[in-house]
Amino acid sequence: MTTLRIQTIRQAGLILAFAVSISALSSTSSFAFSAEAQQMCTGDAFRLCSSEIPNIPKITACMFKNRSNLSAGCRAVMDRDYAAQKASKVASE
């Protein structure tokens, strides 16, 4: 196999692992990312937190820890999703 092919396969595997991690995260009672957040934050997750994939809690913690380094779009949707989930949690208590 060529180096380019190996890199492409590895990158596809990482993308799949991240997508599965985010999908699983969305179905848990902890912080849930919206589909828009997945789309807006995938690049940031790979750039800032690739070493944490596929550990869902570690990816989430890493993204919050690196909030100041997130792209504006990712930061905006994460803030919105977090606020919505927090409001939902307060309303259900």
Rank of each mutant, 00 (worst) to 15 (best):
C41F: 02
C41Y: 03
C41L: 01
C41V: 01
C41G: 02
C41D: 05
T42C: 07
G43T: 04
G43F: 08
D44N: 08
D44F: 03
D44H: 02
D44Y: 00
D44Q: 03
D44I: 00
D44P: 02
D44A: 05
A45M: 03
A45T: 07
F46G: 01
F46N: 03
R47H: 08
R47Q: 15
R47S: 09
L48K: 00
L48D: 00
L48Y: 00
L48F: 03
L48S: 00
L48Q: 01
C49L: 07
S50G: 04
S50D: 10
S50W: 08
S50M: 08
S51H: 12
S51F: 14
S51L: 13
E52R: 06
E52A: 07
E52M: 10
E52P: 02
E52K: 08
E52C: 03
I53F: 07
I53S: 01
I53W: 05
I53D: 01
I53N: 00
I53C: 00
P54D: 12
P54W: 02
P54K: 11
P54F: 09
P54A: 15
P54G: 05
N55E: 15
N55I: 14
N55R: 15
N55Q: 14
N55M: 09
N55A: 15
I56D: 01
I56M: 01
P57A: 12
P57W: 14
P57N: 15
P57Q: 15
K58A: 13
I59D: 01
T60G: 11
T60C: 12
T60Q: 13
T60L: 07
T60Y: 11
T60I: 13
A61L: 14
A61G: 14
A61R: 13
C62D: 05
C62H: 09
C62N: 08
M63Q: 09
F64Y: 12
F64R: 13
F64M: 13
F64I: 09
F64A: 12
K65C: 04
K65Q: 11
N66S: 12
N66G: 08
R67L: 03
R67D: 03
R67V: 05
R67M: 08
S68D: 13
S68Q: 10
N69R: 13
L70D: 04
L70H: 10
L70F: 12
L70V: 06
S71A: 05
S71C: 07
S71K: 06
S71V: 03
A72C: 09
A72L: 14
A72N: 09
G73T: 05
G73M: 06
G73P: 06
C74I: 12
C74Y: 06
C74Q: 05
R75A: 10
R75L: 11
A76M: 02
A76Y: 00
V77W: 04
V77Y: 02
V77M: 07
V77D: 07
M78Q: 09
M78D: 03
M78L: 13
D79Q: 12
D79N: 10
D79I: 05
R80Q: 14
R80D: 10
R80Y: 11
R80E: 12
D81H: 11
D81W: 06
D81Y: 12
Y82I: 11
A83Y: 12
A83I: 06
A83E: 15
A83K: 11
A84I: 10
A84L: 11
A84G: 15
A84M: 15
K86V: 10
K86G: 08
